[in-house]
Design a protein around this nucleic acid. Structure first.
Lengths: 193, 193
DNA sequence: GCACAAATTGCAGACTATGCAAAGGACAAT
DNA sequence: ATTGTCCTTTGCATAGTCTGCAATTTGTGC
């Protein structure tokens, strides 16, 4: 568990570069700043920048927290109604995201203004959706249903973050509650003819 | 309605460039080919390439068909169950996409292998989601519900295309039927505790 | 302390993308 | 048909992105 000096430094440099990227990008826009400027602000050479991230956009996104194994296991083994277990799973993930609210807010602002960054982040979310679908499969025994549930759930997280970004005085947890309530209401409309 | 010579030529050149991009990208990968090569294959100068598209990825995507105004109006004014009207709306849009199956298949292959292109396409889909939500708002009188429905619907279209790409002998319409059935089943699970 | 692996850096070079200005083709009005 | 205008194409120059290579420095395990 305890990281070596090398590993700690690597993590630190990665974070330094991300912070430098976000700081500059918020001030001038990600498209307007150069990798040279980011590297200089992070205190490394340009070549080292590309040693950590393949491009500006990836540097801005960094490495967002994924699903935790324990949460996935809990969802797989859950015995409550699916909607309840799924909501709890999303709550836990949202709590993990809330640990770095500052970064989350900056990443959001930068990403919304840059479609290449959106694409990278979308890949991450797509991977999470598939991970989630994998957890749901044993509980619904139908691939399409598992995929639909997983897609609906990850989309709720995304919309919740969006709501939190645009509405004052709404915590991430509250935003997720509101979005989830909308999803459940929508599900009722789709389910009952 | 009848386009001038200038406009027709412009459309034609845009299509030529997209076709050249897709053809080369399918053979060698979008990342491996240069804008010079694309321009040469399309019979224009490199500078003209950038006159039509801001980058390779946009050239590969081209201008996919959006929702038709008549379909949107029909959805807004529909009197059947929401699930029925919504499905019909998606069917019509899918039919529009099916008019250019060849392009759709090529775009899919190329986009899946390139995250910048994914980002661009994702922006298009996000815009469509908002357009759709706008149509649903008068029928559900709750923003979150409209957004959830619209997001679920556009995600179904995306998953249907994905299914059609990966499964032999499944038409786009059939793929949408299968995905939609999964979405409805998922909705039932979420709606009934 | 020593040998090995990882990290940093500079440099060269291919590729992307934009501004500018010149030249030729389409178009509307006469 | 002619003329003036606008649009399109194109080449050139230039700033910026990203990779491969090789030299140097810096941790790690023995």
């Amino acid at each position: 568990m305890t990281l070596s000096l090398r590993e700690r430094r690597r993590l630190q440099t990665a974070r330094d570069i991300q912070r430098a990227t976000l700081k500059l990008a918020l001030a001038e826009g990600l498209d307007a700043i150069t990798t040279d400027a980011i590297a200089a602000a992070a205190g490394v050479s340009t070549r080292t920048f590309f040693n950590y991230y393949p491009n500006k956009e990836a540097a801005a996104i960094g490495t967002p927290p994924g699903f935790r194994d324990e949460d996935k296991a809990a969802l797989r083994a859950g015995r409550n109604a699916l909607a309840v277990d799924l909501k709890q799973f999303l709550d836990r993930h949202m709590a993990a995201l809330a640990e770095d609210e500052t970064i989350l807010r900056m990443v959001g602002k930068v990403v919304h203004a840059n479609s290449k960054a959106s694409g990278l982040l979308d890949r991450v979310v797509l991977g999470e959706r598939d991970e989630l679908a994998e957890c749901l499969r044993p509980r619904v025994n139908d691939d399409q249903v598992a995929m639909a549930l997983a897609a609906n759930a990850t989309a709720c997280t995304a919309r919740a973050i969006h709501l939190w970004e645009n509405e004052e005085n709404v915590s991430l947890a509250e935003a997720l509650d509101r979005v989830w309530a909308g999803q459940i209401a929508a599900a009722r409309l789709l389910a009952n003819p």
